[in-house]
Computed example of a mutant assay.
Amino acid sequence: MSEKEHIDTKNTVSAEDLKPASAPTEALEDKITELEEEILQLKDKNTRLIAEQHNLGARLKRDFDTKKQYAIANFAKEVLDVGDILKTGLANCSDKDSEHFKGMEMTLDKFYHILKQHGITAIDSLHKAFDHSQHEALTSQETDEHEPGIITQVVQEGYQFHERVLRPAKVIVSKKVSQDS
């Protein structure tokens, strides 16, 4: 065979060659569809895992912050007794002009300042309506000066850490004067 005939036979396409090979093509298209669906499922799963990880991180941070606040609150509850002792010492000091008195007064002022810096404040109670969530009534006192349920005396100061009560104020509450008195 000549070289030209050899080239012609190579480039010759028969009718059989032009028929579509449908079975292998359909199988490949099915496989592509299956893989595309798997990709979508994996992308969805990945997105959900990322969101779950983000939520877990946020939850852990919130839990840490809450535990930190509770730790501060527990410590502050115990330290409040020191302030009470200083306040009692000042109230019972006979020489209000002494250096000792002034030093204790400055110490107590610094104590209250530090509490305030950390979000711990005294509960304003005197002449306010009794609130069982902030006050502990030690007794009641008959009086015409105030309506019933008003705090007439604060026996021990109450404190709160932000909006949470650390220690309720111990108070005496007014009540209506009875007819028998």
Rank of each mutant, 00 (worst) to 15 (best):
176 K>I: 06
64 F>T: 14
21 A>R: 15
83 G>S: 08
108 L>I: 05
149 G>S: 06
180 D>N: 09
126 L>R: 01
40 L>G: 07
133 S>P: 00
167 R>W: 03
146 H>D: 12
181 S>I: 09
117 Q>N: 13
114 I>Q: 09
60 L>R: 14
49 L>H: 08
132 H>A: 14
81 D>P: 01
95 D>A: 03
172 I>M: 02
146 H>W: 10
4 K>V: 13
167 R>L: 09
173 V>R: 00
83 G>A: 10
86 L>D: 01
141 Q>G: 00
46 N>W: 06
70 Y>P: 00
86 L>R: 03
111 F>W: 01
69 Q>Y: 07
117 Q>A: 06
119 G>E: 06
21 A>V: 04
56 L>M: 13
16 E>C: 02
123 I>E: 03
97 D>F: 02
63 D>I: 12
179 Q>M: 07
8 D>W: 08
78 E>W: 00
123 I>R: 02
155 V>H: 09
146 H>A: 03
69 Q>K: 15
42 L>N: 12
38 E>C: 02
140 S>G: 02
106 M>D: 11
145 E>C: 02
142 E>F: 03
73 A>D: 14
58 A>Y: 04
56 L>G: 06
125 S>L: 01
95 D>L: 00
87 K>F: 10
138 L>Q: 10
136 E>I: 01
132 H>K: 15
87 K>A: 10
170 K>H: 13
71 A>G: 13
76 A>W: 03
114 I>F: 07
155 V>L: 11
147 E>N: 10
109 D>T: 12
142 E>S: 10
156 Q>V: 13
74 N>I: 06
37 E>F: 09
52 E>D: 14
156 Q>L: 11
102 K>N: 09
125 S>M: 00
22 S>N: 11
37 E>W: 02
22 S>C: 05
124 D>W: 04
50 I>R: 14
45 K>R: 12
25 T>D: 09
74 N>P: 02
77 K>C: 07
135 H>K: 07
11 N>W: 07
128 K>I: 00
138 L>N: 02
80 L>C: 06
30 D>K: 15
53 Q>D: 10
175 K>H: 08
169 A>F: 03
101 F>L: 05
144 D>S: 14
152 T>K: 05
135 H>C: 08
85 I>M: 09
5 E>F: 07
156 Q>F: 06
125 S>E: 01
176 K>Q: 14
43 K>A: 04
159 Y>A: 04
35 L>F: 08
104 M>R: 02
102 K>Q: 11
21 A>D: 15
91 A>T: 05
151 I>N: 03
15 A>V: 11
95 D>T: 03
110 K>Y: 05
74 N>L: 06
149 G>N: 04
74 N>D: 14
62 R>G: 08
21 A>Y: 05
26 E>G: 03
168 P>M: 04
85 I>N: 12
150 I>A: 03
72 I>Q: 11
35 L>G: 06
21 A>I: 05
26 E>D: 13
108 L>Q: 07
132 H>F: 06
7 I>G: 00
40 L>H: 10
118 H>V: 08
65 D>R: 10
131 D>L: 07
109 D>Y: 07
82 V>Y: 13
54 H>A: 14
18 L>G: 01
6 H>P: 00
